[in-house]
Amino acid sequence: MYKNPNETLDEVEIIGCDNGIDWTVLYEDWMVKLIAEKENIVYVDYLHYKGEVLRFADIVESYYKKSLNNNMPENEFERKGYIAFWNEWKRRKAGGI
């Protein structure tokens, strides 16, 4: 997996994770349009979507904090990606996504 941090280390683009599926998330008024593979489209109420995303983020963060292997990477590029990831994570959670 490749983590490409920006210069201020507050956002990161993660490329190369071939597990799972890719989907598009579009915001339309108070609805969220999810477009999955083969153009499968689902509309979800924004507040419901936001709540589920934040709930899932809490679960992932809790699991990660309990992990024994979450040391700072030694490689400078990987370290910057790691820092940018957690900076973006915290900023997005604090802002409600």
Rank of each mutant, 00 (worst) to 15 (best):
T8R: 14
K33E: 12
K90V: 03
V44R: 04
G16Q: 13
G96E: 12
G20P: 03
G95T: 05
G16N: 13
K38D: 13
N19V: 08
S62C: 03
E78N: 04
I15A: 10
S67W: 01
W30I: 08
Y2A: 11
G96M: 07
K80V: 00
I83R: 11
W86L: 05
D22W: 00
L34F: 02
F85T: 09
M1T: 14
V60T: 05
F77H: 15
E78D: 14
K80D: 15
V53G: 03
K50T: 08
M31I: 00
L9P: 03
K50M: 10
G81P: 09
P5Y: 02
E52N: 13
E76P: 13
T8M: 09
Y2H: 14
A36I: 00
I14N: 12
I14T: 13
N19C: 10
L47R: 06
R91M: 08
L26R: 11
V60F: 05
N40S: 09
R92E: 15
D10H: 03
Y63V: 13
E28H: 06
E37L: 06
I15K: 14
V60C: 12
Y63C: 10
V32P: 05
T8C: 05
M1D: 14
E37S: 10
P5A: 07
L34M: 11
W23V: 00
Y49H: 08
Y64T: 10
Y27V: 09
F85N: 06
Y82W: 15
E52L: 09
D29Q: 07
V42A: 08
I21Y: 09
L9C: 07
I41D: 07
I41L: 02
E61N: 13
D58S: 10
E37K: 08
W30G: 09
Y63K: 12
Y43C: 04
E7F: 01
G96K: 03
N69H: 05
Y43V: 01
M72R: 14
V25I: 14
F77S: 15
E7S: 12
D18C: 06
I35E: 15
V32Y: 02
G16S: 13
Y27R: 13
S67N: 11
I97C: 09
K66L: 15
P5V: 02
G20L: 01
R55D: 13
W86D: 04
E78S: 06
G81Y: 02
K38Q: 07
S62R: 10
K80C: 06
K93S: 00
A84H: 04
Y49C: 08
W89Y: 13
T24Q: 12
E74H: 04
N69Y: 05
M31E: 14
Y27S: 07
I35F: 02
I14A: 11
W30Y: 12
L34H: 03
L68M: 06
A84V: 03
N6P: 02
L54T: 06
G96T: 08
D22M: 03
N4M: 09
L9S: 03
I35C: 07
R55C: 04
R55F: 04
Y46A: 14
I14L: 15
E76K: 06
K38H: 08
T24Y: 04
N6A: 01
K50R: 15
N6E: 04
E74D: 14
S62E: 15
I59C: 04
F77L: 15
Y49N: 02
V60D: 01
A94T: 06
A36D: 10
W23H: 10
V60H: 01
F77A: 15
Y46C: 05
I83G: 07
K38T: 00
K38E: 12
E28Q: 12
N19E: 14
K80F: 00
N69T: 07
E78T: 02
